[in-house]
């Protein structure tokens, strides 16, 4: 067992965990942030994407000990004072979700991208979410939603 400290969705946690746990295991099993989805378990599908110290990571490829001392945001951390994040709102508005399994990962990838984006083109949006796989939507409505979320945030 080993002790780690994590800040998840704005709250500090001190945890005693087994050394071989991945970040996704700690988030889902120890802290019950089950919005983090496990897809392929090998960094191909992006369903487990979370934001770690401002960067998008596959939480299945990060060992929990590697995340020690870091700040993590999962999809549960996006709602502020009961208000959906603009990305979440746009996904609903544009119908960017079908079966929904990949959705939390896409929303986190979009959030991390929009935190830095300036007047993003559709091609740049496509590149930003290219680490996330979706079998249902064909991506077009997801790209629509991310464009829309940018407009919400800029008030345009």
């Amino acid at each position: 067992m080993i002790n780690i400290k994590l800040n998840v969705n704005g709250k500090d946690y001190s945890l005693e965990i087994e050394e071989d746990k991945r970040l996704i295991d700690v988030l889902r099993e120890d802290l019950r942030f089950t919005g983090v989805k496990e897809g392929c378990s090998e960094g191909e599908c992006g369903a487990c994407s979370v934001i770690m110290d401002g960067r998008i990571v596959n939480s299945c490829l990060v060992m929990a000990v590697q995340a020690n001392g870091s700040s993590i945001v999962t999809v549960e951390g996006l709602v502020k004072d009961g208000e959906l994040d603009p990305v979440q709102r746009a996904f609903i508005e544009k119908g960017a979700t079908q079966c929904g399994y990949c959705t939390p990962g896409f929303i986190m990838a979009a959030r991390a991208f929009l935190n830095r984006a300036k007047d993003p083109t559709r091609e740049e949006i496509r590149e930003a979410i290219s680490g996330n796989l979706c079998r249902c939507t064909g991506y077009n409505k997801i790209v629509d939603a991310i464009e829309e979320a940018y407009r919400y945030e800029k008030g345009i």
Binding site: G95, Q98, R135, C136, T137, G138, N140, K141
Partner: peptide, 11 residues
């Protein structure tokens, strides 16, 4: 319907 069309096209 559009969502289904996008998805079917990609598949």
């Amino acid at each position: 319907v559009e969502g289904q069309m996008d998805g079917g096209y990609a598949m």
